[in-house]
Design a protein around this nucleic acid. Structure first.
Length: 202
DNA sequence: CGTTCGATGCACT
DNA sequence: GTGCATCGAACGT
């Protein structure tokens, strides 16, 4: 098992999107390791993508998207949810992959506690971009963290999904024509709305 | 099954 | 002041 190097992220975003499925998102906080296998993600690419936060051009909020690949872009949304992205491409080319769902691996009981006691079949604990950040304890303090060196990182455990499903991105009002949502086909930990796109063998 | 709706805070114009 | 890359409870069918 090894940490993904910066070169993994410094590539076309759709390549990163496809290959990030099966990798392991890890957060070590207060000496406690929590982690999960990435089973769902979406691409947001460039100022010409109307759903990308870079669409209005550079602002203070979206600055991490314009920075070096391999960093985290964390932002706060709907007044209550943190969402975590991995920045891709290269400096000056704003693009990222949004992590949407994990299969829980390490610290499952701790993650359930963070999510609250009103839940929970375990497989729902990290399903949904707001849910997984809450379960892993990710918030704005991790914005711009270096995913290759910090306590928030992505590891390669040699896991390869058998099939992937590509479909339109969800939860957005614009840019829904692009099929930039990539899911581990049929995985039980996918977020609420299950993809109906086409499945491809790898 | 399905859809609607309230909670909630901040970046941006 | 507006609009979110959301979530889950509360309904209706």
């Amino acid at each position: 098992m090894e940490i993904l190097p910066a070169g993994f992220y410094a590539r076309p975003t759709l390549d990163v999107l496809e290959e990030i499925i099966g990798k392991v998102l890890v957060h070590d906080a207060r000496g406690r390791r929590v982690s999960g296998v990435i089973v769902e993600a979406e691409a947001y690419i460039g100022e010409s993508d109307p759903a990308c936060h870079a669409a209005p051009g550079p602002t203070r909020r979206n600055a991490p998207l314009y920075g070096p690949p391999g960093r985290a872009y964390v932002y706060f949304n709907y007044g209550m949810h943190h969402l975590v992205n991995a920045v891709t491409e290269r400096e000056g080319a704003p693009a990222a992959v949004l992590i949407r769902a994990l299969e829980p691996v390490d610290g499952i009981e701790f993650m359930c506690r963070r999510r609250g006691s009103t839940l929970d079949p375990r497989r729902r604990v990290c399903s949904g971009p707001g849910n997984l950040t809450k379960a892993l304890g990710i918030d704005l303090r991790q914005n711009q963290s270096d995913l290759t060196t910090s306590r928030l990182r992505i590891e390669d455990h040699g896991i390869t999904p058998d099939r992937l499903t590509w479909s339109p991105r969800i939860g957005i009002r614009v840019g829904t024509d692009r099929e930039w949502r990539c899911c581990w086909d049929g995985h039980p930990s996918l977020s609420g709305r299950v993809a109906t796109g086409r499945a491809f063998r790898r």
